[in-house]
């Protein structure tokens, strides 16, 4: 598993597609793969496993699960175990004033901690700033 993190609109997806030579058909937007990729192509059909799955906007998926009162940590752990080749892209959201709202606070803390855990288990961690990838693991 590879983990790509960085601020909003820093070029994380572009970095991934270019550096790992992947097409848009590998990309899942704000969701874990449950069927066909968002930008599905004919060639991609029924060939899951040929190119690695890219989960873009992981933080959006995570936040939606939190808002629904679910435990997304367990779900992503299980997914990564079953799909060790996946690439996870997430915004970093912890670098701000601690919010007054309890859910906002919980979102930042829990997303931060699951990213720490994913980074520990990742074979590669890249932080993207201004479109440039800084390989930190």
């Amino acid at each position: 598993m590879k983990l790509i993190i960085g601020g909003y609109a820093q070029g994380k997806l572009k970095y991934v597609l270019q550096n790992y030579c992947l097409g848009a058909d590998s990309v899942w937007e704000g969701t874990l793969p449950t069927g066909k990729p968002a930008a599905e192509t004919l060639a991609g059909e029924d060939e899951a496993g040929v190119s690695p799955v890219v989960i873009n906007r992981f933080h959006i998926w995570f936040r939606e699960r939190l808002e629904a009162g679910e435990a997304p940590e367990a779900v992503i752990r299980e997914y990564v175990t079953g799909n060790p080749d996946c690439i996870i892209i997430s915004d970093e959201v912890g670098n701000g004033i601690v919010p007054v709202d309890a859910l906002e606070r919980e979102y930042r803390e829990r997303l931060g901690r699951i990213l720490v855990e994913l980074a520990q288990n990742a074979e590669e961690v890249v932080r993207v700033i201004c479109g440039l990838g800084q390989k930190i693991k």
């Binding site: 912890g94 701000g96 606070r105 930042r108 829990r110 931060g112």
Partner: peptide, 9 residues
Amino acid sequence: LITGGSGSG
């Protein structure tokens, strides 16, 4: 000096 965001570890 060690810096980082919320939940950064």
